[in-house]
């Protein structure tokens, strides 16, 4: 039996940084915040590198860290937006963030933005990261059943929102 090689975080960073920024961008909605999220995720892993023994699972830990950091970022934003009106301009997503996307994609993304954070995470991990229900359950720290129900509710809500959008144009 051979010991697992140590996790090379620098190599993990080199190979997965961009992909993780893209994942974070889908969760937090602006690139600067996404970069903050990913940087914090890597440095968090770095601080806890003593506990990292399985290099094969490192990407999973990283993805989980990115999701958790994104959730923290959104929670922080909500607090700031609710109570600190003065700081809002700095943290609001850029006004032109969707400008160069096709209208069809914008419509879907606007609908996704209306979902609760947990449902949005499930959809992003399922349809962007192409993760299985079991992998999503691991990443979010919830049961497979919860993943399935959250995904189902999210899809139903999306369908309803988008049908409404097609009929009255107000998504």
């Amino acid at each position: 039996m051979t010991a697992d090689p140590p996790v090379d975080l620098a190599e993990l960073y080199r190979t997965h940084h961009l992909q993780m920024v893209r994942l974070a961008r889908l969760l937090v909605d602006d690139t600067a915040s996404a970069e903050d999220v990913v940087q914090e995720a890597f440095l968090g892993m770095h601080r806890n590198r003593g506990a990292l023994r399985d290099s094969r699972a490192a990407v999973g830990y990283l993805r989980q860290a990115v999701v958790n950091q994104s959730r923290s970022m959104l929670r922080r934003r909500r607090t700031v937006r609710a109570h600190l009106k003065v700081a809002e301009p700095e943290i609001a997503p850029p006004a032109d963030s969707e400008v160069i996307l096709a209208e069809e994609h914008q419509e879907v993304l606007r609908a996704v933005d209306q979902l609760p954070p947990r449902q949005r995470e499930v959809l992003v991990l399922r349809y962007w990261s192409e993760m299985s229900e079991a992998e999503i359950a691991d990443a979010l720290g919830i049961s497979k059943g919860t993943v399935k129900s959250q995904a189902s509710r999210a899809m139903a809500t999306l369908a309803k929102i988008m049908q409404g959008g097609e009929t009255d144009g107000s998504v």
Binding site: V21, R25, L26, Y127, A159
Partner: peptide, 25 residues
């Protein structure tokens, strides 16, 4: 309808994610 929604989700997520390139970082 579900298949169509899944397809649209994948396309939208991909389009948005690929807005970020290495040069943007």
């Amino acid at each position: 309808n579900t298949d169509d929604l899944e397809r649209r989700l994948r396309a939208a997520f991909t389009a948005k994610a690929l807005q970020i390139s290495d040069a943007d970082l």
